[in-house]
Design a protein around this nucleic acid. Structure first.
Lengths: 162, 162
DNA sequence: GGAATTAAGGATATATCATATCCGAAAACG
DNA sequence: CGTTTTCGGATATGATATATCCTTAATTCC
């Protein structure tokens, strides 16, 4: 049960977008080069963010992506689900229904007890991600990343944004 | 990020094994037929449980599997990790290291902030599973499954155990 | 002792999905 | 108009889940 690498990419890209000056866009090319990622494939992750209305886009030179909402209004779960999908990690195939001792046409009142427990764990995972805002990540990063690296990184990407 | 179907199979099989009379074994064949599963492939899941020392095995006719510990000493996480592995769902490829603005030889003191959050969510998932014992599942099942179906199911599998 | 049964594990085949690249269309900008 | 960009479709490739088959060794029963 491994998350797509696009999840990691999307989170890091959102962190950069969150630090952009008001109104500026950042292209796929700039984000790919900054992180050392394949541009064409990263583009798919960014498209997912766009479809989830987490980022806005504009075309043409100096176009690209920017956040559609303030970083405090975006949580980790939104980003993760945008690229990974909203499907639960455990799917119940209802194998109890194959039990030959069950009478014909017997109908269960509740979902399978095993599935309920697995779904509860899945919810705990999602709850944790829901509680972390993108602004929290940016706060942590600006504390931990040396300020000169942090600053020159944004100068670097903005130079590429024209 | 989907769990293997073997996880579902293993959990249901453990629930049945937990209800067996003391000292009895149940074969792969019986467990596969009870749940309508491919015998050869289910065998791989049971082998995983065996390698994790969750079940004991014996060969020959009337051989098969039984729990190695009382159901109250086995939790969901043990079963899930036995077949799914212990690897975290999020793997950090440290793409921040590709940032061209980082000085040569710069070394991060902490693991990536993104990874720390994703791992925290992963721990929340594991914690939930760790807190549920196999005996809890059996308790729920014996409450919810009509007693005649519950009883005839064990008669059915025990007949197949010789 | 011999036949049947069983778990264990290796080898292999198939299907699904993640990863990755390429291309054409439409939009924005100078 | 020419360049740059997002977007979506098409396609290729690699890894992994799913599934089956076969051999070996251990155990039980006759």
């Amino acid at each position: 049960m491994i998350l797509k690498s696009q999840v990691e990419w999307a989170l890091h890209c959102c962190a950069i977008l969150a630090g952009l000056p008001e109104g500026r866009y950042l292209s796929t090319k700039a984000l790919a080069e900054l992180h050392g990622l394949p541009k064409e494939y990263l583009s798919k992750a960014l498209q997912s963010l766009s479809q989830a209305s987490l980022v806005e886009t504009t075309l043409g030179p100096s176009g690209g992506y920017r956040l559609a909402k303030p970083p405090s209004d975006i949580n980790f779960l939104e980003i993760v689900e945008a690229v990974e999908g909203k499907a639960r990690s455990f799917t119940c195939t209802n194998i109890r229904a194959n039990n030959p001792c069950r009478p014909e046409g017997y109908c269960d009142s509740k979902p399978c007890a095993v599935a309920r427990i697995m779904w509860e764990a899945d919810e705990a995972w999602r709850d944790t991600l829901r509680r972390v805002r993108l602004s929290d990540l940016v706060g942590t990063l600006s504390e931990e990343v040396p300020s000169d690296i942090w600053r020159s990184t944004f100068e670097w990407v903005l130079k590429r944004a024209g």
